[in-house]
C-alpha cells in the first residue's frame, strides 16, 4: 500500500531540461517506471532512453501514464499543471519553485472540479520506499516501514527521514507538500491519506512559519486521526516580516508564528519535537511499539 505512488505507478516527466532528465534517470534507477517525457515540438524523439511526446494527452494515450512530475520553468508551470489535469493524469507533482501566486490561485481553483491530485509546487516530491520515487528526494535515505512523513520543506524532510531510518524505523511514504502559499495538497489532505492507509501506523508532520496550515491540521488531527502524529515546526526563532527562503514562510501581521502553531498542535494531542534533532526520538516516545 503506501500513499500516492507505488511500484505500479507509471510516471512521465513534463519539462525535460537538465533537472528533468537528471531526476528522471535517478527515479528510473530507483525502480520507478518512467514511461515518457513531454517536450512540445520534440515528440517522436528519445532523450536518454526516454520516449518523448509533444503533449501530455499523447503521452497518456501511448504509455498509460497515470502520474507526472513537472520541472517546467515558472512562467509555464501553471499551464503544465492544467495540461496534466486535462490529459487525465491522476497525480501531478510540481517541483518548480517561483510560480506567481496569481497563477497558482487560478490553477488551483480550476482544479477544483478535476480528479487529479496535485502535490506542490515548490516541493521535493514523494517517495514510497523501494517502490517509487517522484521528484528530487535522495531516496537512498528512506527505508520501508510504518511511518508516514509529510513536510512543507525539502531538506528538513530528509533530516526527519534520516533520523527515523537511523533509529531503525522505516517509512510508508515520504511526502513534501511544498513551501509556497498555494499548494495542491495540504497537511490535512496528506494526514487523511495516511489515516486511510493500512500500512501507515504513525505520522511525522513537519511544518514551518507562515500561514495557518499547521493550525488547521491540528484541528483535523483532533477530530479525525486515530494514528499518533508527531510534529516539528521550523522557524521558532525567525524574525517577523522576513521571508525565510520559502515564498510562504513569513510571519505577517502577527500571524504564522511557530509558537502559535506548536500550541495548536500540542492542544490537539500532537507530540511536538523540542528541537529539530529530536524528531525521530519524539516519534519513538509517541509510538514505542514502532521502534521494536
Amino acid at each position: 500500500m503506501a500513499i500516492l505512488c507505488d511500484k505500479d505507478t507509471r510516471l512521465i516527466v513534463q519539462g525535460m531540461g537538465r533537472m528533468g532528465r537528471f531526476h528522471a534517470n535517478l527515479s528510473r534507477e530507483y525502480g520507478t517506471q518512467v514511461v515518457g517525457g513531454v517536450a512540445p515540438g520534440k515528440g517522436g524523439s528519445e532523450i536518454e532512453g526516454t520516449p518523448i511526446f509533444d503533449t501530455v494527452a499523447d503521452a497518456v494515450k501511448k504509455t498509460g501514464a497515470d502520474a507526472s512530475v513537472i520541472f517546467v520553468p515558472p512562467p509555464a508551470a501553471a499551464d503544465a499543471i492544467l495540461e496534466a489535469a486535462n490529459a487525465g493524469i491522476r497525480l501531478a507533482v510540481c517541483i518548480t519553485e517561483g510560480i506567481p501566486v496569481l497563477d497558482m490561485a487560478r490553477a488551483k481553483s480550476a482544479l477544483a472540479d478535476s480528479e487529479m491530485r496535485l502535490i506542490g509546487p515548490n516541493c521535493p516530491g514523494v517517495v514510497t520506499p523501494e517502490q517509487c520515487r517522484i521528484g528530487i528526494m535522495p531516496a537512498q535515505i528512506t527505508r520501508p516501514g510504518p511511518v508516514g512523513v509529510v513536510s512543507r520543506s525539502g531538506t528538513l524532510t530528509y533530516e526527519a527521514v534520516d533520523q527515523l531510518s537511523r533509529l531503525g524505523i522505516g517509512q510508508s511514504s515520504c511526502l513534501g507538500i511544498g513551501g509556497d502559499p498555494v499548494i495542491g495538497t495540504n497537511f490535512i489532505d496528506a494526514l487523511a491519506l495516511f489515516e486511510a492507509d493500512p500500512d501507515t501506523r504513525a505520522v511525522v508532520m513537519i511544518g514551518e512559519i507562515g500561514g495557518s496550515a499547521e493550525e488547521e491540521a491540528a484541528e483535523f488531527v483532533q477530530s479525525n486521526m486515530t494514528k499518533p502524529v508527531v510534529a516539528f515546526v521550523a522557524g521558532q526563532n525567525a524574525p517577523a516580516g522576513k521571508r525565510m527562503g520559502h515564498a510562504g514562510a513569513i510571519i505577517a501581521g502577527g500571524k504564522g508564528r511557530a509558537s502559535d502553531k506548536i500550541a495548536a498542535l500540542e492542544a490537539a494531542g500532537v507530540a511536538v519535537a523540542e528541537s529539530p534533532a529530536m524528531i525521530g526520538r519524539t516519534l519513538v516516545v509517541a509510538a514505542p511499539e514502532l521502534a521494536a
Binding site: L156, A234, P276
Partner: peptide, 22 residues
C-alpha cells in the same frame, strides 16, 4: 534548503547560542 536553514537556527538557539543569519 529553507526548512533545514530555519531548523538550524532553532537548533543553535536550543543549544544556547544565537545565529548571525539565515
Amino acid at each position: 534548503g529553507a526548512g533545514l536553514a530555519m531548523a538550524t537556527l532553532d537548533m543553535i538557539h536550543y543549544c544556547g547560542g544565537t545565529p548571525a543569519n539565515f
